[in-house]
Protein backbone atom coordinates (compact mmCIF):
# COMPACT_ATOMS: atom_id res chain seq x y z
CA UNK A 1 0.00 0.00 0.00
CA UNK A 2 2.69 2.39 1.02
CA UNK A 3 4.75 1.47 -2.02
CA UNK A 4 1.76 2.32 -4.22
CA UNK A 5 1.40 5.79 -2.68
CA UNK A 6 5.10 6.47 -2.98
CA UNK A 7 4.98 5.32 -6.61
CA UNK A 8 2.15 7.72 -7.40
CA UNK A 9 3.97 10.58 -5.67
CA UNK A 10 7.18 9.86 -7.57
CA UNK A 11 5.25 9.72 -10.83
CA UNK A 12 3.51 13.03 -10.03
CA UNK A 13 6.81 14.71 -9.19
CA UNK A 14 8.30 13.33 -12.40
CA UNK A 15 5.41 14.72 -14.47
CA UNK A 16 5.71 18.11 -12.77
CA UNK A 17 9.46 18.26 -13.32
CA UNK A 18 9.11 17.33 -17.00
CA UNK A 19 6.44 19.99 -17.58
CA UNK A 20 8.44 22.58 -15.72
CA UNK A 21 11.53 21.79 -17.75
CA UNK A 22 9.56 22.07 -20.98
CA UNK A 23 7.98 25.34 -19.81
CA UNK A 24 11.29 26.89 -18.84
CA UNK A 25 12.81 25.81 -22.14
CA UNK A 26 9.91 27.35 -24.03
CA UNK A 27 10.01 30.57 -22.03
CA UNK A 28 13.73 30.93 -22.66
CA UNK A 29 13.37 30.39 -26.38
CA UNK A 30 10.40 32.79 -26.60
CA UNK A 31 12.26 35.34 -24.57
CA UNK A 32 15.20 35.05 -26.97
CA UNK A 33 13.01 35.51 -30.05
CA UNK A 34 11.16 38.43 -28.46
CA UNK A 35 14.51 40.08 -27.72
CA UNK A 36 15.52 39.51 -31.34
CA UNK A 37 12.25 41.06 -32.51
CA UNK A 38 12.77 44.05 -30.23
CA UNK A 39 16.27 44.50 -31.67
CA UNK A 40 14.98 44.25 -35.21
CA UNK A 41 12.23 46.75 -34.51
CA UNK A 42 14.75 49.10 -32.92
CA UNK A 43 16.93 48.91 -36.03
CA UNK A 44 14.04 49.33 -38.47
CA UNK A 45 12.64 52.28 -36.56
CA UNK A 46 16.12 53.81 -36.32
CA UNK A 47 16.66 53.49 -40.06
CA UNK A 48 13.19 54.90 -40.73
CA UNK A 49 13.85 57.93 -38.58
CA UNK A 50 17.30 58.44 -40.09
CA UNK A 51 15.92 58.25 -43.62
CA UNK A 52 13.02 60.57 -42.78
CA UNK A 53 15.58 63.05 -41.43
CA UNK A 54 17.46 62.74 -44.73
CA UNK A 55 14.31 63.53 -46.69
CA UNK A 56 13.65 66.49 -44.39
CA UNK A 57 17.18 67.87 -44.84
CA UNK A 58 17.08 67.59 -48.63
CA UNK A 59 13.83 69.48 -48.86
CA UNK A 60 14.93 71.97 -46.19
CA UNK A 61 18.08 72.72 -48.20
CA UNK A 62 15.91 73.52 -51.22
CA UNK A 63 13.69 75.83 -49.22
CA UNK A 64 16.73 77.50 -47.65
CA UNK A 65 18.13 78.22 -51.08
CA UNK A 66 14.79 79.54 -52.32
CA UNK A 67 14.55 81.88 -49.38
CA UNK A 68 18.16 83.03 -49.68
CA UNK A 69 17.69 83.64 -53.40
CA UNK A 70 14.56 85.57 -52.72
CA UNK A 71 16.19 87.74 -50.03
CA UNK A 72 19.31 88.54 -52.02
CA UNK A 73 17.40 89.31 -55.18
CA UNK A 74 14.99 91.47 -53.28
CA UNK A 75 17.76 93.44 -51.59
CA UNK A 76 19.67 93.97 -54.76
CA UNK A 77 16.99 94.96 -57.15
CA UNK A 78 15.58 98.42 -57.65
CA UNK A 79 12.23 96.84 -58.42
CA UNK A 80 9.86 96.16 -55.59
CA UNK A 81 9.77 92.47 -54.88
CA UNK A 82 6.02 92.26 -54.70
CA UNK A 83 5.51 93.62 -58.19
CA UNK A 84 8.19 91.52 -59.90
CA UNK A 85 6.89 88.74 -62.10
CA UNK A 86 7.55 85.14 -61.19
CA UNK A 87 9.57 82.85 -63.37
CA UNK A 88 7.53 79.75 -64.32
CA UNK A 89 4.93 80.92 -61.78
CA UNK A 90 7.21 79.96 -58.91
CA UNK A 91 6.85 82.50 -56.14
CA UNK A 92 10.53 82.12 -55.17
CA UNK A 93 11.96 82.94 -58.58
CA UNK A 94 11.37 86.56 -59.43
CA UNK A 95 12.28 88.24 -62.67
CA UNK A 96 14.21 91.47 -62.25
CA UNK A 97 15.49 93.99 -64.73
CA UNK A 98 18.62 94.59 -62.71
CA UNK A 99 20.77 91.50 -62.28
CA UNK A 100 24.12 92.93 -61.29
CA UNK A 101 24.67 91.93 -57.70
CA UNK A 102 28.00 92.13 -55.92
CA UNK A 103 29.26 88.84 -54.47
CA UNK A 104 26.05 87.18 -55.51
CA UNK A 105 27.30 83.62 -55.05
CA UNK A 106 28.91 84.04 -51.67
CA UNK A 107 25.93 86.03 -50.40
CA UNK A 108 23.53 83.29 -51.47
CA UNK A 109 25.73 80.58 -49.96
CA UNK A 110 26.01 82.39 -46.68
CA UNK A 111 22.31 83.13 -46.51
CA UNK A 112 21.33 79.56 -47.50
CA UNK A 113 23.60 78.28 -44.76
CA UNK A 114 21.88 80.46 -42.17
CA UNK A 115 18.40 79.40 -43.21
CA UNK A 116 19.45 75.76 -43.38
CA UNK A 117 20.74 75.96 -39.81
CA UNK A 118 17.32 77.15 -38.68
CA UNK A 119 15.70 74.22 -40.45
CA UNK A 120 18.09 71.65 -38.99
CA UNK A 121 17.46 72.96 -35.48
CA UNK A 122 13.83 71.93 -35.94
CA UNK A 123 14.61 68.20 -36.02
CA UNK A 124 17.26 68.05 -33.34
CA UNK A 125 16.30 65.84 -30.42
CA UNK A 126 17.92 63.60 -27.80
CA UNK A 127 19.01 60.98 -30.29
CA UNK A 128 19.53 63.02 -33.46
CA UNK A 129 22.89 64.72 -33.86
CA UNK A 130 23.07 67.16 -36.73
CA UNK A 131 26.40 68.67 -37.76
CA UNK A 132 26.94 72.17 -39.10
CA UNK A 133 26.93 72.43 -42.86
CA UNK A 134 28.88 74.54 -45.34
CA UNK A 135 26.83 75.39 -48.38
CA UNK A 136 28.30 75.54 -51.86
CA UNK A 137 26.42 76.51 -54.98
CA UNK A 138 27.42 75.59 -58.49
CA UNK A 139 25.93 75.29 -61.94
CA UNK A 140 25.30 72.09 -63.82
CA UNK A 141 24.08 73.01 -67.27
CA UNK A 142 21.03 75.15 -66.69
CA UNK A 143 20.40 73.67 -63.23
CA UNK A 144 21.67 75.02 -59.97
CA UNK A 145 23.33 72.50 -57.66
CA UNK A 146 23.16 73.28 -53.96
CA UNK A 147 25.44 71.20 -51.81
CA UNK A 148 25.60 71.19 -48.03
CA UNK A 149 28.84 69.67 -46.76
CA UNK A 150 28.79 68.52 -43.14
CA UNK A 151 31.64 69.26 -40.75
CA UNK A 152 30.87 66.04 -38.87
CA UNK A 153 28.47 63.15 -38.99
CA UNK A 154 24.72 63.17 -39.18
CA UNK A 155 23.88 60.65 -36.48
CA UNK A 156 21.09 58.76 -34.86
CA UNK A 157 22.37 57.56 -31.51
CA UNK A 158 20.54 55.40 -29.00
CA UNK A 159 22.89 54.62 -26.17
CA UNK A 160 23.80 50.95 -26.07
CA UNK A 161 21.28 50.10 -28.75
CA UNK A 162 21.91 51.73 -32.08
CA UNK A 163 24.15 54.13 -33.95
CA UNK A 164 23.62 55.16 -37.55
CA UNK A 165 25.77 57.83 -39.11
CA UNK A 166 26.44 59.45 -42.43
CA UNK A 167 28.89 62.14 -43.42
CA UNK A 168 27.92 62.48 -47.06
CA UNK A 169 27.08 65.93 -48.37
CA UNK A 170 23.44 66.69 -49.08
CA UNK A 171 23.02 67.64 -52.69
CA UNK A 172 19.91 69.02 -54.34
CA UNK A 173 19.22 70.09 -57.86
CA UNK A 174 17.20 73.23 -58.16
CA UNK A 175 15.11 72.84 -61.23
CA UNK A 176 12.21 75.14 -62.01
CA UNK A 177 8.87 73.51 -61.37
CA UNK A 178 6.93 72.92 -64.53
CA UNK A 179 3.46 73.10 -63.04
CA UNK A 180 1.38 75.68 -64.81
CA UNK A 181 0.14 78.72 -62.94
CA UNK A 182 -3.08 78.15 -61.05
Amino acid sequence: MRKGVIGILIFTIFVVVVIEAATIQYLLSTSYSSKATARETNIIQGINKFELNHRYLEQALKYSFYQAFRDISQDSSYLKYSVADSLYCIPYFKIYDETTITDFNSKIEESTEQYFKKYTDEIKDDETIIPDYDVAISLSGSDIVVEARPDGKLQLYREGKLEISDDKPIKVLIDPLTDSCP
Binding site: Y66, Q67, I123
Partner: peptide, 12 residues
Protein backbone atom coordinates in the same frame (compact mmCIF):
# COMPACT_ATOMS: atom_id res chain seq x y z
CA UNK B 1 8.30 66.53 -39.48
CA UNK B 2 8.29 67.98 -42.96
CA UNK B 3 9.91 71.30 -43.81
CA UNK B 4 7.73 74.15 -45.03
CA UNK B 5 8.71 77.00 -47.33
CA UNK B 6 10.30 79.70 -45.19
CA UNK B 7 7.82 82.34 -46.21
CA UNK B 8 4.97 80.46 -44.53
CA UNK B 9 6.22 81.70 -41.17
CA UNK B 10 6.70 78.20 -39.83
CA UNK B 11 9.76 76.12 -40.61
CA UNK B 12 8.27 72.68 -40.17
Amino acid sequence: KIPLPYSTGKLS
